[in-house]
Nucleic acid binder design. Sequence first.
DNA 1: GCCGTTTTCGGCCCGACTGTTTTCAGTCG
Length: 596
Amino acid sequence: MSAATDSEPRADPSNGAIAAALDELGDLYELDGAIVHRVVAYRSAAKAVRDAPVSVAALARAGRATELPGIGRTLEQKILDLVTTGTIPAAAKLRARFPPGLIDLTRLPGLGPKRARRLFDELGIDGLDALREAAQQQSLRELRGFGARFEEGVLAALATGGGLRPAPRMLLHRALSIGEAIVDGLRGRPDATRVEIAGSVRRLTDSVKDLDVVAATERPERLTQALGELDMIETSQASGPAGARARTHSGLAVELRVVAPEQFGNLLQHLTGSKEHNLALREAAVRRGLHVSEYGILDTATGVEHRHAREEQVYGQLGLSYIEPELRENRGELEAAESRGELEAPPLPELVRVEDLRGDLHSHTVASDGRNTIEQMALAARERGYEYLAVTDHSASHGFGNDVPPAELELQIERVHEVNGRLGGIELLAGSEVNILPDGTLDYDDELLARLDWVIASVHTAFSMSARAMTDRMLAAIEHPLVDAIGHPTGRLIDRRSPYALELDEVIAAAARTGTMLEINGNPDRRDLNDIHARAAAQAGVRILINSDAHGTNTLGMVRWAVATGRRAWLTADQVANTVPWTRFAPLRKRARVSS
DNA sequence: GCCGTTTTCGGCCCGACTGTTTTCAGTCG
């Protein structure tokens, strides 16, 4: 937190900080009345920065930021200003013209930049407090285009805190389970011929802000009414003939859209998104004279609207092969779907599946904070069809009363080998999830580590180090010859805790060079590495592990969330180390190569 | 502000719904 001085160069802003600055600039230009396309350019650039797997500050200093999609010379210069001076001149200028509370106004539902600007220009309303006061005095309705309903809406939104901050997001596993229940409920209705989950839940993103459901029916009004009658629905705001909106008791916003069966593919494709995928898809289609909507594809040459019952037909008419929902983020999937393999763009990958996994390299037992014994975990893993399971309880300094002192680990090794000798059909690895201490050392000595069959090393303490110190800490662990893999490498908790400051490109390069595997952790709160980082790591040649981090027999299945992230990372089974049989996995371990 | 099977200017997806309106702009996804 020390201020930068002449002797101490300014620390590079993170991608998140650069993205926030671009988003703010977009907001300011929007208030300033800039054309929408310019504002969209800032938003899309912010997203590109946020998604970039490498340091954008470093890219900008190298004059290479324009390699990112949606970033041209102007934005590169603005990023460079931010990196070198800590501020963007254009933003400073606009901030002086518009009070900070004005952007808060645009966060309220139904109040965008145009109307917020009018409230400021014509009534001097410069923030939420002034807006509340004006609404209470019923002076908003004097403005043309504003009425009593608007005043009521403002007071209601401010009273409930709605709109003051973005709606809380729900983790995927919860939203998916609610979504499946809703889909089941609607499928039971005689009027529904098809019902599917769409939106970000179908794309298996980390977390979601709402649930999109699509249905095919000849009787739309019957089905939209049925949504409100489901047990899990708290309130329904029946909209129009195109669908309905509702909210579940758990607070999840649900949007149901309906079309005729012959248009179901168009609707499913549209509502699955992402917005960026659809935007790029539609722009490319327009260049071919085709206009894509949720109702069909209009061919401007013939005037014919083509309706498709299946998504494959939608992509097919656009000259594309089918794109898995997890890939629909406009991260190169459209180019790949267009490729037939012979061109320079590689075709779409065949994505890894849960069924491809042959083992799990991260699990806990009662020896630390797990709930089941070695034998119970082994039987459950064998039941899943695994050929190997690493028992990796926490190490000597875990704390929380769950640590395993060296003497205890020696006993645990014997227990694992004993069960392994007794049980057939599965290879049990005596392992440990070893803490990486702040100085980069581990909390067992090398002699003990060498007696283990498998070591996954993780950071569990001292999260708020500088990026340099944390990177060095991680690199020290990666360079250790007895560390086979790194667990949950960035430490993030989805929507709750940011990743530690870390130069991930250095971590990835070191992991690739040393043959240290990097994990995608299946805990639905973690999914760490994330999709962007896992893709970058795999492209750099790092072997990726897909692990459950199960703390009981009933959570071995959490690998499905890690597989979801792996699929979003474009991973094929070949890029995931634990898709191979034990005889091929064993020699991939760093320790196997050190000792041979 | 970006970008190019429309290549350095002139475009930049498409539709639903809302509130306040008599035909639509703004907002949202």
